[in-house]
Amino acid sequence: MMTMHSLFLQELRRLILAIGFFTRLPVPYLADFHESELNHAARYFPLIGILIGLIAALIYWIVAKILPVDIAVITSMIASIYLTGAFHEDGLADAADGLGGGWDKEQVLTIMQDSRIGSYGAIALVMALLAKFELLINIQIVILPFVLIAAHAVSRFAAVAVIYTQDYVRSSGKAKPLATKLSRSELVMAGIFGLLPMSLLPWQPMLLGILAVIGVWCWFSFKLKKRLGGYTGDCLGAMQQLTEIAFYAGFLIWKGVA
């Protein structure tokens, strides 16, 4: 039976592995690493989102003190992309190419594996970045840092929910270490991390943001199930990007109806 100390060290190790897998942040070297250890790292995906959101929010806040808001937003976006190595943006582009250009499951998966970006992927990437920028510059300056933190967290929980509800459809790939069925307790833990930052926001626009995330999650999950019978790592990245944008849009809708 594991002691509290050994349990703490085990979870700390998993968190460090998650940081190393999902970001470019430096982490301590961990001896005797096994790829299978990342199976339990998905529970920390939203926590990594909080970390990325905090850094992006801090950079936005600092730059906004000395430069125009639009420059601060762009700088914050660049920072988040750099911190993750464009991990999720790459997934969005590959998923758009595959789902847009493939006729059947095997063709979609083959296109997703191609390292070259196609027209669907390029358009999806440009439109996603443009949408983020336009949405963010229209959110109130004082609340924007908290919106960033919440969006990065909840969008990563949306990706975790895909892992919980669907099957991985490749025999190998960049998400293979995470491609196991999560337990209910792991999903709950991820949900706590994913929804906790919502407490920083006013409830009306926050609720609209969550509803927008749910709507996009249901739509894209249905598309993955219908086209692929499950998900790939690229699909998780696409889900994160789409639901992050959805949260910004839902949050901003309140400004128009209030």
Score class of each variant (00 low, 15 high):
Ala161Lys: 11
Pro145Ala: 07
Ile123Glu: 01
Leu92Arg: 06
Leu182Val: 11
Ala79Leu: 04
Thr110Lys: 15
Gly91Lys: 08
Leu201Gln: 07
Ala212Ser: 15
Leu201Val: 00
Leu242Tyr: 03
Tyr29Gln: 13
Ala258Thr: 10
Phe45Ser: 09
Gly191Val: 06
Glu106Thr: 15
Tyr82Trp: 14
Arg24Leu: 01
Leu208Ala: 04
Val169Glu: 03
Gln10Gly: 11
Glu106Cys: 06
Ile245Lys: 04
Glu106Lys: 10
Leu228Lys: 00
Leu30Ile: 15
Val162Asp: 06
Met112Cys: 03
Ser155Thr: 03
Gly100His: 00
Ile19Ala: 12
Leu92Ala: 07
Leu7Glu: 09
Ala31Met: 14
Ala258Cys: 10
Gly102Lys: 08
Ser80Phe: 05
Phe45Trp: 12
Arg227Asn: 07
Asp32Pro: 03
Gly209Trp: 05
Met206Trp: 14
Arg156Val: 00
Asn39Lys: 14
Gly173His: 02
Ala159Thr: 09
Ala64Asp: 13
Gly91Glu: 09
His88Met: 14
Ile141Gln: 12
Val162Thr: 10
Ala124Asn: 08
Gly101Met: 07
Phe22Thr: 14
Phe146Pro: 02
Val188Pro: 08
His40Leu: 11
Gln107Phe: 04
Phe193Leu: 05
Gly101Ala: 15
Pro202Thr: 00
Asp94Leu: 03
Leu99Phe: 12
Leu252Gln: 12
Pro202Gln: 00
Leu99Glu: 00
Asn138Pro: 04
Leu83Glu: 06
Gly237Val: 13
Leu58Tyr: 11
Pro46Ala: 06
Leu15Pro: 07
Ala72Tyr: 03
Leu228Pro: 09
Ile123Asn: 06
Val154Glu: 01
Arg227His: 06
Leu51Glu: 07
Gly194Thr: 00
Arg227Gln: 11
Leu51Arg: 00
Ile245Gln: 07
Leu58Pro: 00
Glu244Ala: 02
Ala159Gln: 05
Phe146Cys: 08
Val169His: 04
Leu144Phe: 11
Ala95Gln: 10
Ile139Thr: 00
Pro197Leu: 11
Ile210Ser: 13
Val126Phe: 13
Val216Ala: 14
Arg116Phe: 10
Ser80Lys: 14
Ala175Asn: 01
Leu25Met: 09
Leu211Asp: 01
Val63Ile: 15
Trp254Cys: 10
Gly85Trp: 05
Thr232Tyr: 01
Lys65Asp: 01
Lys105Trp: 10
Arg43Val: 13
Ile59Val: 15
Lys174Tyr: 07
Ser171Cys: 05
Ile141Ser: 13
Val147Lys: 00
Ala96Val: 01
Ala131Ser: 13
Glu11Pro: 09
Lys181Ile: 01
Phe133Ser: 00
Ile111Cys: 04
Met198Glu: 06
Ile245Leu: 08
Ala41Pro: 01
